[in-house]
Amino acid sequence: MIIIIGFEELHAFIQYIQLEKNYSVHTVQEYEKDIKQFLSFLNNEGVTDLNEVEYIHARLYVTRLYDEKLARTSISRKISSIRSYYKFLHKEYNVRDDAFQSLFHPKREKKLPHFFYEEEMVQLFEENKGTDSLSVRNIAILELLYATGIRVSELTSIELRHIDSSYGVVRVMGKGRKERYVPVGDFALAAIDDYLLNSRPKLMKKTSHTFLFVNSRGEHLTTDGVRYILNQMLKKASMNSTIYPHMLRHTFATHLLNNGADLRSVQELLGHSSLSSTQIYTHVTKEHLRKTYMNAHPRA
């Protein structure tokens, strides 16, 4: 379907968030997708001028999103994308931006993050041990994700020079291109050393680059590649669960809090800009304490 209005302005907006705001590739793609969908909706509604968009159009669009059974978080993200676009339009093209300003974000569904229990992590590590190149690499990936709580996108962007074994830290580039240093435990450092000594050189073959983790052909390992590896490790451990990379991030935070870490420290380690993003894990730890009490107290 041909989008009649907003296409040129969208191109300018995408350049703006890429070059001036320095948003990640993934974030830019999400913004572009959200706004294109909205422009397509306007086209279908017969709106031919961005200045013609009113609150009723915004309300109708959000209603359509609910009809499509989208998650509230997805709807909220789309509203934010369109608001940012209209803020840019108002500044650069003097387009009215009031249509979405009075639109409320849907209340976020209170879903507790899924995580692995400590004994499950032990099982995952034990069942995936091996001396072949891929097994050594996979353990290094699992150890680093669990030891640091970093995002998979942060993991795949790590270069050799970003690992400092002497200080036990790794430099990662987080959301909004924010750089932070995260401590790495001895188990993860040992696994990385093993990988660098006995696995990576064999996998690299005739390729040459500085990224830490590589695939079976020696090429830069992608986020999809990491997801595939983790799922294969889960199957190998015969664990009746579904794994997604963020589960290890959730596990990292939950285990720290369960073992006495303070919320501010966990926030800094995760690279969260606000404490509210980290506070979801307090609900997980409270639930953990409740279950422990119910299982342990003789009169519970």
Rank of each mutant, 00 (worst) to 15 (best):
F104W: 09
P106Q: 06
E120Y: 11
K110F: 06
R96G: 10
Y61V: 02
K110I: 13
E127I: 00
E109S: 14
I75F: 02
E127S: 04
S102Q: 09
F104C: 06
K129A: 03
Y93E: 07
S74F: 01
F88A: 09
A71R: 11
E119N: 14
P113M: 13
E109K: 12
A71G: 05
A71N: 09
I79R: 03
I82T: 06
S81K: 07
T63G: 07
S74W: 02
N138W: 01
F100I: 00
S76Q: 11
V122G: 02
T131L: 08
D97R: 15
E120S: 13
D67A: 13
Y61A: 03
Q123Y: 06
K69G: 02
A71W: 01
F116K: 07
S74G: 00
T131M: 08
H105T: 14
R96W: 10
E126G: 00
H90I: 11
E119F: 11
M121T: 15
V122W: 02
S133W: 12
S76A: 14
L65V: 05
Q123C: 11
N138I: 06
N138K: 07
E120I: 14
A99V: 00
L103I: 15
F100K: 06
E120G: 10
K87S: 10
Y93L: 01
T63M: 11
T73N: 15
Y85P: 03
F88N: 11
S74Y: 05
D132P: 05
L124G: 02
S81N: 04
K107D: 07
S74N: 01
F104G: 08
S80A: 15
